[in-house]
Nucleic acid binder design. Structure first.
Length: 342
DNA sequence: AATTCGTGGCC
DNA sequence: TGGCCAAGAAT
């Protein structure tokens, strides 16, 4: 691991921020100002999600709910509809809970420190540091995937970034490097660097504004960084999706449990099957709906069923209009599309 | 500490 | 196609 002296640190800050001022992504909508609400919404949306995907969602979200009070007072269903398709839906619920803490419990007075921000639902070490530095000028490193990637290469840190305890290694190494005058810009500059010259695949290190600080490149081992252990592959699961219409043509849905995968969302009733041998010949001629989550791979065969005499407590029929107003997970949209094509 | 939690893009 | 990745947090 490299160890920079004070002169190197100050030089690095200058080079990084000079580049950021000239070529940073200042046009990103959440960088229009330092409103903590905008920063918080953007950071929650950006967790594990690409910038290109978030931009549209962010603008729509801010148009609909421009202030923290608007979000705090909004019906949860509206928040989920605005989040529909972004995934990791607990983020949306936690974001609204956080807004309610700020608007109601704290009466609109934002927690401004890293430690206080950390108490908000959905706000972990990265997000607390990002908001504290960007919106409130606190000098803390916002350690995310970009940060790991950039500094693992610059400093040749070979700890496995998939391990929780590695965060501390990076924190100790880089906390002294964060620019005390512009901590928010410093953190954002690292992110911009990490998605451009120092991106994961096919980086352009030779033209990076911090080339001369890159120890891994200097030693010809940049491709070995960052060190990251691999994830397990998703487990395959098969389901039947019960297709039930009532006399009005409404479609039967079932609400999922309030915890776990797609918590609280409505989908067609899904019934696990152990093997394809449980399907009849006609179903087997149909290509199943396929949907991959982080840790599960679903194959779903729609099957028409007679209307049951009695509905379960978590079941109800929805009209066409109701279905469109509802926030539905991607997999349910895929099922609906498959029904249309039958 | 290891799992769980979505989705889309890329090769 | 399948594997990997992308501004992580909660449990």
């Amino acid at each position: 691991m490299e160890d920079w002296n004070q002169q190197t640190i100050e030089s690095f800050r200058r080079d990084l921020l000079t580049w950021y001022d000239q070529e940073g992504r200042q046009h990103l909508p959440w960088r229009k100002n330092q409103d903590p609400y905008r920063v918080l919404v953007s950071e929650l949306m950006l967790q594990q999600t690409r910038v290109d995907t978030v931009i549209t969602y962010f603008n729509r979200f801010m148009d609909a709910l421009p202030t923290v009070l608007d979000l705090a007072k909004a019906p949860e269903e509206q928040v989920l509809k605005l989040w529909e398709g972004l995934g990791y839906y607990s983020r949306a619920r936690n974001l609204q809970k956080a807004a309610q803490v700020v608007a109601f419990e704290l009466k609109g007075k934002w927690p401004e420190s890293y430690d206080d921000l950390l108490t908000l639902p959905g706000v972990g070490p990265y997000t607390a540091a990002a908001v504290a530095s960007i919106a409130f000028g606190e000098v803390v490193p916002a350690i995310d995937g970009n940060f790991f990637r950039v500094f693992s290469r610059l400093l040749k840190i070979d700890d496995d970034i998939a391990k929780p305890k590695t965060r501390r290694v990076f924190y100790d190494a880089v906390a002294p490097i964060v620019d005390p005058k512009r901590p928010g810009d410093f953190n954002q500059a690292i992110m911009d660097l990490g998605t451009s010259y120092m991106k994961t695949k096919d980086p352009d290190t030779l033209h990076s504004p911090v080339l001369k600080y890159n120890a891994a490149y200097r030693d010809g081992v940049e491709e070995e960084y960052p060190v990251k252990s691999k994830k397990k592959k998703p487990v395959s699961q098969m389901y039947e999706a019960l297709v039930v219409y009532n006399e009005n043509g409404d479609l039967l849905y079932e609400q999922r449990p309030d915890s776990g995968l797609l918590a609280g969302f409505w989908t067609l009733p899904l019934r696990p099957i152990d093997s394809v041998e449980q399907l009849d010949g006609e179903q087997l001629t149909i290509k199943p709906v396929s949907h991959i989550f982080s840790h599960r791979k679903w194959s779903i065969w729609p099957v028409s069923v007679e209307t049951p005499d009695e509905l379960a407590k978590n079941q109800r029929f929805f009209t066409e209009e109701e279905q469109q107003a509802l926030a539905l997970p991607k997999v349910q949209h895929k099922i609906l599309q498959a029904l249309k094509e039958l």
